[in-house]
């Protein structure tokens, strides 16, 4: 499912116009992205949590050429799935 399918699903469930539903979905993901951009943590009970990890600069290699390069310090977002969702995802027998 992509964002516009999620917008349609919300509109259908809550009897909203596509536009209004889109506004809700955009606000949710925009404010989550904004929170992560300022280094914050997000916790959605029953779904999971998002956090930002800091990485120091290190010497790495270009895997193609073997050339040694300096990797600059960076931050990466991480998601940790919540207990409820982790169990629900695993319920169905893998086919």
């Amino acid at each position: 499912m992509n964002k516009s399918e999620l917008v349609e699903a919300l509109a259908g469930q809550k009897n909203l116009t596509f536009k209004k539903s889109e506004e809700v979905i955009n606000l949710i993901f925009d404010s989550m992205a904004h929170e992560l951009a300022r280094g914050g943590r997000i916790e959605i009970r029953g779904f999971g949590s998002f956090m930002v990890k800091d990485y120091k600069a290190y010497m790495g290699r270009n895997p193609k050429t073997g050339e040694v390069i300096k990797v600059r310090p960076k931050r990466l977002p991480f998601f940790k799935v919540g207990k409820e969702l982790r169990e629900r995802v695993n319920l169905e027998e893998p086919s």
Binding site: F29, A33, G46, E84, L85
Partner: peptide, 27 residues
């Protein structure tokens, strides 16, 4: 409150069915 709950409920059911979710600009 109901709208936000519904968004996460929809995402959870979708993932429970093994289907991926693609949110452009987020992940």
């Amino acid at each position: 409150d109901e709208n936000v709950e519904m968004v996460f409920d929809l995402m959870k059911s979708n993932l429970e069915n093994g289907e991926k979710i693609k949110i452009a600009g987020f992940g």
